[in-house]
Computed example of a mutant assay.
Amino acid sequence: MSETTAHSAKHTKSAGLELRAVRKDYGSNTVLHSIDLRLEPGELVCLLGPSGCGKTTALRCLAGLEEVTSGQVLIGGDEVSGTPVNRRDIGMVFQAYSLFPHMTVAKNVEFGLRMRKIPRSERTQRVAEALELVGLSGFEHRYASQLSGGQQQRVALARALVTRPRALLLDEPLSALDAKVRVHLREQIREIVTELGITTVFVTHDQEEALAISDRVAVMNGGHIEQFASPEDIYRSPASAFVADFVGVSNKLPGVLTGQGVQLHQTTLPLVTSTQLAAGTSVTALVRPEHIAFAASVDAQLHGTVVSSGFLGSLRRTVVRLDELETEVAVQHHANERFEIGETVGLRFAEVPVAIRAED
């Protein structure tokens, strides 16, 4: 993006977004259970969760594509629950690019400006700025059939941004793209919305995507927000067993609660959050692979046998069958540290708080 374009496109009316005790029912089925969510102006927040958790419904309530059953939707502090989509002043990008096939790239991007009756000279300038913003200068006269999937999605992004909306809503915008294009485009989206300072909600089921681009992440499950925090806090200090299990990789180990934490064999680890379960309760502890290390036999807290080992570039993930706990764990370690299948090894846990869940 050129300095001129960045300056001329700099967002000046970015608005905070808020869902306040929003409930959404479809008949007898409640999809959102009185959720609260507040975004500061210019913040990029990802709604992350499995299919059916309510994240897209929450986005559609913000957009005005769904009428809330109860609660309030606020944009810039204004209550907009009864305001139609075209008067909420937001830009939207969906998984389906939804470009008009009979229109050129320029005409697709210009469409929203024409509907707002913006003068032609200003439309031309703003379309050029938007296309430069997404790296598609020179593509003005091409049609959708002449573009790759990534290029089509960038046209859709330019079309959403050209009207200079108060907020940007993106619903699984990258899921139809191949992995390499997806990574490149998510970085570009992050750069653009940061440069413009535009409040952005990004819906995804891809945890890596959410952690990579967000200021904060709202992890959703069953129509509830389980945790709303920074990517680092979501990963390092999960507020529930669901968050610990859904975000990242966790080993599931049998343990017993004590007054000091959870006992795994002869080792006691602290808990991420307090629990109302009584001491002596059997639970499952969720331990990250990077929080287990290989150790000399004399220093080991557990012993096991190497089952498999996978090369991950700078890292290696080795699976060990634990004799004492009669289960397997994945250990993440440096790629130069190698073990043979069938080799007996010792392991130690890092003194890092862990999440727990009651045994099924």
Rank of each mutant, 00 (worst) to 15 (best):
L48I: 01
T281L: 06
L161P: 03
A278C: 11
L177C: 07
G64W: 04
R182Q: 11
S282V: 09
S214H: 12
V219Q: 14
F139T: 00
E232G: 06
E191D: 15
K13L: 11
E343I: 07
V181I: 15
V31E: 02
A335P: 04
L174S: 03
T30Q: 06
F349R: 02
R23I: 12
Q151I: 03
R357Q: 12
D233S: 11
I35W: 01
G135W: 07
G280I: 03
A179F: 12
I234M: 02
A210K: 10
F139I: 08
T194H: 09
Y97M: 06
S8M: 10
H11V: 05
S314P: 07
Q332T: 08
T327P: 10
L169T: 04
K55S: 04
N29R: 08
A212T: 03
V183C: 12
E172K: 13
L312M: 10
V201C: 07
L113W: 04
A239L: 13
T267E: 07
A229T: 05
P238G: 06
P119V: 08
Q151W: 06
E3A: 13
A21N: 15
H303I: 02
L74S: 04
V31Q: 02
K24M: 12
D171Q: 15
H7E: 03
H7Y: 08
C46P: 10
T163D: 07
A210G: 07
V181L: 15
A9F: 15
T305Q: 08
A21L: 13
V80D: 09
E328T: 14
